[in-house]
Design a protein around this nucleic acid. Sequence first.
DNA 1: AAGACGGGGGA
DNA 2: TCCCCAGTCTT
Length: 355
Amino acid sequence: MQEVIFVRIFTSMNFSKLLIDWYQLNKRALPWRKTTNPYAVWLSEIILQQTRIDQGLSYYEKFIETFPTVFDLAKADEETVLKLWQGLGYYSRARNLHHTAKFVVEHFNGTFPDNYKELKKLKGIGDYTASAIASICYDEPQAVVDGNVFRVLSRVFGIETPINTTQAAKEFKTLAQSLLDQTNPGEFNQALMEFGATQCKPQKPLCSGCIFKDHCIAFNTGKVTLLPIKTSKLKVRNRYFNYLVVVSANEKTLLEKRTQNGIWKNLYQFPLIEKENNSILNTAEIEDVFDITKIESVTLFNEKPIQHKLSHQHLHIRFWIVNTDMIPKDGYAISEINKYPVPVVIQNFIERFSF
DNA sequence: AAGACGGGGGA
DNA sequence: TCCCCAGTCTT
């Protein structure tokens, strides 16, 4: 038996009007919505990449207060920027943020480019962020495609192209562009994202009162929970970290900066011994790290490795307390270590361990 | 085209 | 547990 399904077709302006009317009634009051200052909008967009508003909000407030203008940000040390970013993750965003602030000050006298094409040339600004800034600050009709847009459009229009493909990026950008309100693109873009974030949510979307109920292909074919489609699951690498926490006679410890590419680049940590497996360290391995003669004692801080899960890596971490009589030459005063940007797992240890 | 890159929150 | 988040860059 063939099932017959009725879906109302959008007329040209329908989608945009329904959406923007909904937005006017339902938008949250957020600090970056009070301005079209490109610096503030840029900052908010970088912070919100792959980050929930609830998580990013306090960081935005901190950054705007500490660095009210692009000049203030450009003047700061990278370490200061990373410290303020600590805990937010994806630290390349902070490094690129700082780089671009300096670039804008040096080459554009502190004035951001006023169009999509030039914005996209800046480090850390991709298609999404360039479209967001250009539309919100300069009314340039560039549609944004973020996770919300993928979800809303895939459902409403019943698009089954896996969203983590190059083809989907083009397909959804074209569709979003065709729906875009040409006279108020910034409003439209924000409305579509807000709608995805609060109504057309990943889980338990609020379909019963949805403005697109009569039009939505997914809703009318029972496929809401199946869309959007995403292929391939990433594989996670296990790594085994042993951190050596030196406690010296003169209240100093050792820190090192992670300078290679990879996780936590340019953040600090205790001296690290990485192993291939979960085996316990022996004292010889620890002594090899320091060219020292006098280790008083070595104790294992946590018998059970701390499980620290990142997107692509599952870290198993042990902390070793190394007491020594010697005075480390390049030691960091215990009282000063909170000035350095460190990964969350290191910060948690510092707070648990009473030096 | 695929992989790397954080950390937290919700179900 | 698993999924996803106002993505971008590198390989």
